[in-house]
Computed example of a mutant assay.
Amino acid sequence: MPSTTGFDPEILGLPFYGDEHRRLAQQINTWCESYGELWQTVRRTDPDEAGRRLVQLLGDEGWLMSLDPTTGPHDLPSDTRALCLARETLAYTEDLADFAYSIQSLAATPIIRYGDEDQKKTYLPGMADGSIIGAFAVSELEAGSEVSAVGLSARRFHDGGYVLDGRKAWIANATIADLIVVIARTGDGPGPLGLTAFLVPVDTPGVRVSERLNAIAPRSFGHLSFEHCHVPAEAVLGRPGQGLVIALDLLERFRMTVGAAAVGFARRAADAALVHTRDRDAYGGKLFDLQLVKSSLADIQIRLNAASLLVARAAWECDRGDRGFAKHSNIAKVYATEAAQNVVDASVQLFGAAGLVEGSITERLYRQIRSLRIYEGASDVLRISIAETLDMRRGTHGG
């Protein structure tokens, strides 16, 4: 019988994980199964309303408690492997649940890593209990994936604060966020050295949603505008000129988690395809009996196993403090998202016309998986980054 969990117990049994990670996976999987009716409801709900409801639920149920380290120690792990396992299981269960969890974690992490004590006390308790919804704003229409090309300006004001002017594009949670982590250009250094991170509450005068966007997989999504937006000096996250470091550190840590979510989507598609082919009558037997179908299912399993291992390795490297984890995070993100796209597409093919019907599991997954090849660094851009890590001295001796 196919798996009914959002993770692979055999992968989880490898030395990459500890008993605490195995407990986490079991607990969040049980929790996801207990809210079956809710997942049906949120799919029919306005994305903004669903987003608010899910962040609050995740906070109420304790799944965001690691976002406020002062409440520790926690019974469950709060490292990168835990984040990946949570995303994998939530994505297997419901796309919007994974989205709510991941963006809240994405917005809180730079505060955890770079915030001062006052910033942590002001924002992290609310982000952990779901009463403060976060967003991370780095992308711009003109900059795309090039963080160093950010153009939103932050000019020093006479009181020591800053005035932000410009726009941010394609921001997750833009339409429901209470707090935005903004990367802006302060000019403290040339090019990439001139960026600074700011914590900007959405009720700050001058901040507004300039456009709500309808993505192929519905969720809170939009463009933001900053017009003569004045923030105090205390809004600076980290140090002036440290914005690029903060942005890259965050993206490198979260790319592998995007890969984990992709594995969750792919595993759900694989399980659905296996059930369908075993139950579907075809050519005097079952669809599963056809050799081409078995070959397709075998390829799905190969991709799933490879993607799971790459994500596990990247998260393990990050948690053990390996400075080269970014390369493994990029590799895991590229392979897992590309492989998941192939797995979902193959599953649609195995379902045939039934897999194209609006609202069917394969139709939903087909829309949901596509964005992951772009989030936190498009596959093509990351391939360039991976290539730049190659040791050019290898293979120079010839044969």
Rank of each mutant, 00 (worst) to 15 (best):
A215S: 15
G377E: 01
L244A: 05
S296R: 14
A100Q: 08
G222E: 02
Q291R: 12
D322K: 14
I302G: 05
Q27C: 04
E140M: 07
V182K: 07
T277G: 10
Q119D: 07
D281A: 15
L310A: 12
C32S: 15
S3L: 13
L195N: 04
S308L: 04
A282M: 11
Q242M: 07
A312L: 09
H328I: 01
D60H: 13
A353P: 05
S153I: 01
F157T: 02
R23T: 11
S220Y: 07
K294S: 09
A108Q: 10
V207L: 08
D129H: 02
M65G: 10
M392K: 14
V207R: 03
F351S: 05
A174I: 00
I176Y: 13
H228G: 09
S78T: 12
A108D: 09
V182T: 04
E61I: 00
W31T: 00
G355V: 05
T80A: 10
T389P: 05
R268P: 02
N29K: 03
R87W: 07
Y162H: 11
F198Q: 01
I386P: 09
G243E: 08
R43E: 10
K120I: 05
E142A: 14
I171F: 15
S379V: 12
L287Y: 15
S360Y: 02
L76R: 06
D203I: 02
L38V: 08
R208T: 08
I176D: 03
G13V: 00
A233I: 00
T30Y: 06
A306M: 04
N342E: 14
R52G: 14
G321H: 06
G395H: 13
S225N: 12
L195F: 10
G144E: 03
P2I: 02
S379D: 08
A266K: 10
A100N: 04
S145V: 03
A107Y: 14
A298R: 14
E388N: 15
D203E: 14
F16L: 07
A135N: 03
V258W: 06
N342Q: 13
R43T: 00
A260M: 03
Q291H: 12
V344E: 04
Q40N: 11
G398Y: 09
R44N: 05
S379K: 04
M256S: 15
I176V: 14
K333R: 12
A154L: 04
P192W: 07
A354F: 08
S347L: 05
V343A: 13
W63N: 05
D319S: 09
A354V: 00
T122D: 11
G359R: 03
G144Y: 12
L152N: 02
G166V: 00
T45G: 06
R239K: 06
N29Y: 05
A261W: 09
R393V: 00
F221K: 04
G151K: 12
K327R: 15
D118A: 15
D79W: 11
G241V: 01
R155N: 08
E211Y: 10
E252K: 12
F99M: 01
W39M: 04
R255N: 02
V293Q: 06
Q56A: 14
V258G: 11
A143Q: 14
D203G: 06
G166R: 10
A340F: 07
G134K: 12
P69R: 07
T4E: 11
I11L: 15
L54F: 13
E49V: 10
I384G: 10
T396G: 06
F288R: 06
